[in-house]
């Protein structure tokens, strides 16, 4: 019987420099080690029906990513799934939850459209100056009509083409918050197949708008969650509930 399981997982510091495709390959092998009878698709070069979810930009940690896997098996519950795959994963890639979903359920890509990131600065740089600068930068970003960034496009005649993208419509909110060890800039950004912005791009336009290098000297970026934004509230992809 074909089963489809949706799982949540974290990506810790040790794996933040591993690309999305490499994580896919790693998960594939982990499922094989755990002896899952995976479902493959494609005749010429069969690929597992395994989806690590919305790509996480290189260098960013995350506490809640969502992925999916299809396999043949009995009526496995989320709990049984967790215990069999758990032993095959390092601490920095821990599956934290798993739920059976129906084969008819829409894909993760269709059910997720925004990400919340926390950009943080080290303690020593959280004085009044940084806060003031971030406030000024945040105002400038939110008040801008258009924010153009350059992205790598397709190769043409062997040369990498650059294309311009306006990321302003993808920025939903920016808030400065304090946490135990310093300052954070919390961003809610659009994500997914209708276009999106990365937190690095937001910091880069803030640096350009303020003319100060400090916004780009953050200590790290963390993805806190992936959601579906329906007007007022943020909801995780079903069947996961707001925790």
């Amino acid at each position: 019987m074909m089963q489809r399981i949706r799982f949540s997982y974290l990506r810790g510091e040790n794996l933040k420099f591993i690309s999305h495709l490499d994580i896919l390959r790693f998960l594939h092998r982990a499922f094989r080690r755990a002896d899952f009878n995976l479902v493959y698709r494609g005749k010429f070069n069969p690929q597992p029906r395994l989806d690590p979810g919305i790509p996480l930009p290189l260098g960013i940690t995350s506490e809640k990513e969502y992925g999916e896997v299809y396999f043949y098996g009995g009526e496995e519950t989320g709990k049984e799934f967790l215990s069999s795959i758990g032993a095959q994963l390092p601490g920095a890639l821990m599956i934290t939850g798993a739920e059976v979903v129906s084969l008819q359920e829409a894909s993760l890509m269709e059910q997720i459209d925004c990400s919340r990131y926390r950009v943080y600065w080290k303690e020593e740089s959280t004085g009044g100056e940084l806060r003031e600068l971030l406030e000024r930068g945040t105002d400038k970003v939110l008040n801008a009509e258009k924010l153009t960034v350059q992205r790598r496009g397709k190769k043409k005649k062997g040369k990498r083409q650059m294309r311009e993208v306006d990321i302003r419509p993808f920025i939903y909110s920016l808030n400065i918050e304090e946490f135990s060890r310093g300052l954070e800039l919390v961003m809610l950004l659009q994500t997914g197949n209708r276009g999106g912005a990365s937190p690095k791009e937001v910091m880069q336009v803030m640096e350009e708008l303020t003319g100060e290098p400090e916004p780009a000297n953050y200590h790290g970026i963390h993805r806190e969650g992936l959601y579906r934004y329906d007007g007022g509230s943020l909801k995780p992809p079903p069947p996961f509930k707001v925790s």
């Binding site: 040790n14 794996l15 420099f17 591993i18 690309s19 490499d22 790693f26 092998r29 982990a30 390092p90 920095a92």
Partner: peptide, 8 residues
């Protein structure tokens, strides 16, 4: 990824 180690 060339420099992080920690492979399986």
């Amino acid at each position: 990824a060339r420099y992080v180690g920690n492979e399986w």
